[in-house]
Design a protein around this nucleic acid. Structure first.
Length: 193
DNA sequence: TCGCCGATCGGCT
DNA sequence: GCCGATCGGCGAA
């Protein structure tokens, strides 16, 4: 399992968000390895995107990494959950792709241990906050290069059919609410909704 | 410093 | 479907 090269991330954000589908996300955490196929993503293309944290070129300690090179991890905390993104676009263009759901592949036992043994397999990773907990992805990984240990992507299978639609949970974002920038693998059991 | 708000989740109706 | 938990980031003062 070799990490995908840094050059892979040098493509337009919408294209990148689609190309992630079917690829394997791997985390070699200290307490165990987990991995899963990416089945759902969302693109955030600031500064024009009202739903993006980088809207209006808002540059803060939190959004700083999005202004840098593609292929680095942007994590942030939402309520009590950590959400994971991969920075995209050219330097100075604050864009990123949110990983919304994965299909468990390696380390299922570890995922149950972290999420609770009462969960059904389908509930382990079918949401952006759930998959980070199952894979032990935390704020420590902010700024991590996604083409290196311990968190990286591996080549996978190209999905049969991809669908797209409006993004989830961004109700107060004007026109941006309608942009079909959410992508998922058709009929996959692990998408968030 | 304070107050508001959210790219969520899980439990309850 | 609806709602409350819960907490860091951000802007206002």
């Amino acid at each position: 399992m070799n990490p995908i090269n840094e050059s892979f991330y040098q493509k337009p954000t919408l294209e990148l968000a689609k190309s992630f589908l079917g690829m394997l996300l791997v985390h070699e955490a200290e307490d165990g390895i987990t991995a899963g196929w990416i089945v759902e993503t969302e693109a955030y293309i600031g500064p024009e995107d009202r739903a993006a944290h980088s809207f209006n070129n808002r540059r803060t300690k939190r959004t700083e990494v999005m202004f840098g090179k593609a292929g680095y991890v942007y994590t942030y905390v939402m309520h009590t959950h950590c959400l994971v993104n991969i920075v995209s676009g050219e330097v100075g263009h604050p864009e990123a792709v949110l990983i919304r759901a994965i299909e468990p592949y390696i380390g299922l036992e570890k995922m149950y241990e972290r999420r609770g043994f009462d969960k059904k397999e389908q509930q382990l990773t079918n949401g952006p906050g759930k998959l980070t907990k199952a894979m032990a992805i935390t704020q420590e990984l902010y700024g991590h290069p996604i083409f290196q240990n311990p968190l990286y992507l591996v080549e996978g299978n190209v999905p049969k059919t991809i669908e797209s639609g409006p993004r989830i949970g961004i109700g107060n974002s004007g026109e941006a609410r309608e942009y079909p920038w959410r992508f998922w693998i058709s009929e996959n059991q692990f998408i968030s909704r």
